[in-house]
Design a protein around this nucleic acid. Sequence first.
RNA 1: GCAGGGGUUCCCGAGCGGUCAAAGGGGCAGGACUUAAGAUCCUGUGGCUUAGUGCCUUCGAGAGUUCGAAUCUCUUCCCCUGCACCA
Length: 887
Amino acid sequence: MDNKSGTFWLEVEKKWQDAWGKENIFQAKEDPKKKKCYVLEMYPYPSASFLHVGHVRNYVIGDVFARFKRMSGFSVLYPMGYDSFGLPAETAAKKEGIHPRIYTEDSMKKIMGYQKALGNSYDWSRTLASHEPDYYKWNQFFFIKMLEKGLAYRKKAPVNWCETCQSVLANEEAEGGKCWRCQNEVVKRDMEQWFLKITDYADRLLADLDKIQWPERIKTMQRNWIGRKEWIDIDYKIDGAKESITVSTTRPDTNFGATFVVMAPEHPLLSKEKNLVPADRRKAVDDYIKLAQKKTDEERIAEGMKKTGVFTGLYCVNQLTKKKMPIWVTDFVLLNVGTGAVVGVPGHDIRDFEFAKEFGLPVIRVVVGKDGDKSEITKKEQVQEEEGTMINSGFLDGMNIHDATKKVMDYLEEKGWGRRTIRYKIRDWMISRQRYWGTPIPVVYCDKCGVVAAPEKELPVLLPEKVNFKVTGNPLATSEEFVNTKCPKCKGKAKRETDTMGGFVDSSWYFLRYCDNKNKTKPFDEKKVNYWVPVDQYIGGAEHAVMHLIYARFFVKVLKDFGYIKFDEPFQKLFNQGIVYKDGAKMSKSKGNVVFQTDISAKYGIDTARLFLMFVSSPDKQMEWSDEGIEGSSRIINRFFRVAEKIKSVKSDKKTISKLNMAIKEAGNNVDTFDYPKSIIAISDFLNYLDSLEVVPKDSFETLLKIVSPFCPHMAEEIWHELGNKSFVSIAEWPKFDEKLIDVQFEKIDSVIYSLRSDIIRVKQLAKLEKVTKVKLFVAPEWKWKALGIVQSVCKERPDFGAAMKALMADAEMKKRGGDVPTFLKTAMNRLSETSGLAKFDEVAVLNSAKPALEKEFGVVEIIKAEDSKEVKAKNAFPGKPALLIE
RNA sequence: GCAGGGGUUCCCGAGCGGUCAAAGGGGCAGGACUUAAGAUCCUGUGGCUUAGUGCCUUCGAGAGUUCGAAUCUCUUCCCCUGCACCA
């Protein structure tokens, strides 16, 4: 048969997509009788350009999962929507004069069209877009609730400012001092900003990571981001003054090696008001402070930077050593880390070492590392920061650094010199953005009443349509009618907040809105949300590991505390798909290595693309696109049509049934773990088998169509209907397999091993229960080692056997016999019976020809022989299963 | 440096104690079909050998555990991905 052409597919795809839509077969319903399954892909930013194969892959990963779950009897919610607020629309408005709303809605229409062409089983009736007032109204609603509870607040803070984007960025968006969007340098600026108190939830965000099944990598990233650490704040009394200086550290174990104290230039103790710095040092200190203030944090702590600082003229005493330590000021110490003062341990901290070298301060070794070097520390390479044993540290000597840390913390607390403190790295979530295209923050500033929230019934505070996009800065501030308003409290004149919320607010709860997307009076109906959420399977890119995924978790916890929902984690399971590469690089327009959805579907049809993308590598791995590779998938699809022509209404024979059950088992069992390639291999193996038959039984082929339908829904639907079926295969019941019908004799070696493994397990269990009184083991010579393995497994479970076996194995004579395997096994087994005194293994026999003996014993043994040795590859024929008889 | 994940036969990629010279796909070679291409289908694809078969070498490198290792342990080299003068 000829290949199906692109036009053929275009027609077929449209036909079934329309039919599915018309019958609403993918509509999600809350069905109390069924188990629910919420499958969710991270909602995309609506870009107007075509989907490339990387996008296709992402969407299809979810669709296969959703389709499989639906067929398996779950009530499935599988929605799609759009993260439609954001900078690109605003940039377009500035550049091309198109209104962001028009631009966005146009893009949405396009991307929706491309997505629909994939044939994904989304419930389109539940779609949403974050720029719609019906949606962002609830952002404002939640914001006001948080404001009432003190979870939202405004403060002046040094923030990350991106010149290019003319906006503030969250910490998460400015990692490494670069803007996550434009990659430009981020500068620090003091501005009034709105924050959400995510730090209040740091503990729960950390602890609850244990409740969810996420990739370890993502969890680790979140743990690092939250950065919970146990610190100890130690007070050192300043000589000749009432005040103490409080330093903070997570590593007090090395404090016997402390030789100085350093503090941040902004430290309050240095202020003129405190008047602690001796007069002769005052000028030097002030000059230094001025110098330091000109630098950004990044400059101050940049690697390889020469250490600078001045002596303050002050001293304090290290209680542990009773030694006097000079107090210095330096800019590598940051005020907002710990207490803004650090005890200098130059022997075991690179920064301290560099500082000590620079200013001739003493260096003491208190830790000996793996290398055993105990000499004086004079070189940077000798500075031991990790792992080691304490020396020169009084009562800590000989302990490893971790034990020493605990011990010294206890000691310091006991003496009243220090206090343990839990500190987190995570900072409050800054949500203000000086942009138009986002949710307006619903507050006004009144001269009399101060900050006043918009009353609930006035929500949403709508974005004004008419604004000037040509200005630098926030276009929203140009709308007089928006800015000038009345105070809801005193009805006097007031100004509206012109900052909008960052997009991560939108994406923190959109998955709740899908459950009830048309609700006009509430963000969602609690019952519906509690039915569907938590999301059972969330699918998306790993780039959201800390931002979106931590904010959404925070939001859900807050909403739970508010009593809206009953769960406290939004996403039970998380799956990160890999990126598709081509020519060694990510697909991007600028590199010109983009393969579009349409490039493939126009030639082979979208199902071929789906099959290829799911087949060629595991969805979590990155994959390299190859134009040649797709031919293989195309062949599989064509083979389906070819095999379908051989269909007759005949009964499937035993072998076919066995193979079919095998295929169902493999195809289904690998979906939950996203081992799609394995599923497809099982499917194509069975297809190839059917192809080898003269006549293909209809029932078996139809079952095959069911199991392939999640991957290639259009093809499956087309052939299904060609065969005269009236229903949709897309919502057919996933076939059940019967392990008993899978006859290992028909299967390949792999499966034999598999079944043998279950035998082993069974024997193990029985052995544990001490029910085994007799084990007869018949093996073909080919299986001798395997059989020995079984015996060993049993012995591990039964100490009485085990001892005997051990003795046996230690026997030199036996070792010698190792080469002669059948004899070895036979002797081993017999000896084992003797020495164990239990004689539990009897009639051990290694059969040179397995067949007759097995037949005699069990009656039913059939050994497949290559009917014609020329036709059947030797490796595919197998001589007989080892048999275990347990009495 | 820390944390997470990897290195498999020409390529991609499975396997994770014994039927493993290692699934599947691609590529390549040969064959069938065709006037010919294309498509499709079969066969082969580490080396040496046989009528079936057997033997040797191979899963980054080295060592170990085991009767037996691509699979387990240790050491080592390399690659990717996050985090980072966080005290």
